[in-house]
């Protein structure tokens, strides 16, 4: 598998009278983990929603596909009626099969879903009600659905919100494994230490691209100190080490 490279060229987005993205230019290399960081309201989610074709942007976003053209997308959170009778298997199956889920799931697909959930530490949760899972477990289910069918590009919108340490480790492992196999990852991430440790590239956005490059270079620059004023002391120590 080989993920695509992506080029954002003069991307602008205006909603009503508000300029959300202002002449955004940067490139995401194929087969890398590329983190998008920035303050709340800086246009990160709008940027990736433009990437997946959900925003009326201007300019050019070109995806140079290599092998496969499947995008796996993990939204910020699944906002739904928790009391709805939907099991984890129902949810996973409805994202990847045509046959109405109330008519059943084929054995092969059920095995694939079970194996994917197992990879994310959710073995045994197949029959659990989606609404009764913890927030962290539900985030992992959301991540699991993005892996079926096998994507070439993973687009993640803060997928680790609400995850405990064990959950973070499992998901981080899955992301590394995916990128290691050649997949491209575009990831909105607020955890700058994690970005430093795992990302191949980082782009800081606040309507415009303010920083772009390899994390160790970007975070060592003077501008980074100014842009990450709230970085905690332990985190600074990790980065400076």
């Amino acid at each position: 598998m080989q993920g695509p490279s992506i080029e954002f060229a003069n991307v602008n987005l205006e909603l009503g009278n508000t300029k959300i993205l202002d002449d955004v230019n940067f490139t995401i290399r194929a087969g890398t983990i590329h983190c998008v960081v920035g303050a709340n309201g800086g246009g990160k989610t709008s940027l990736i929603r433009s990437l997946v074709g959900q925003m009326p942007h201007t300019g050019r976003i070109s995806i140079q596909w290599q092998e496969g053209r499947v995008i796996g997308y993990v939204p910020q959170a699944l906002d739904f009626d928790r009391s709805l009778p939907i099991t984890v298997l129902d949810f996973m199956a409805m994202t990847c099969q045509r046959r109405p889920v109330f008519l059943g799931v084929s054995r092969a697909r059920r095995r694939l879903i079970a194996a994917t959930l197992e990879r994310l530490g959710l073995g045994g949760k197949l029959g659990s009600k989606l609404g009764s899972l913890s927030g962290g477990e539900r985030q992992r289910v959301l991540f699991a659905q993005a892996l079926i069918p096998e994507p070439a590009l993973l687009v993640l919108d803060e997928p680790m919100t609400g995850l405990d340490l064990a959950g973070k480790d499992i998901m981080e492992g899955a992301i590394r494994e995916f990128a290691g196999a050649g997949g491209t990852v575009v990831w909105i991430n607020h955890d700058i230490v994690q970005v430093y440790e795992i990302a191949d590239a980082l782009t800081y956005i606040n309507r415009q691209v303010l920083l772009d490059g390899a994390p160790h270079e970007v975070l060592a620059s003077g501008a980074a100190t100014h842009l990450f004023p709230t970085l905690t002391l332990p985190a600074r120590e990790v980065l400076s080490a």
């Binding site: 997946v52 959900q54 699944l78 739904f80 939907i86 959301l142 659905q145 687009v155």
Partner: peptide
């Protein structure tokens, strides 16, 4: 359940 997810699919 999630229009964004559905759209990407």
């Amino acid at each position: 359940l999630n229009p964004s997810l559905a759209h990407v699919r």
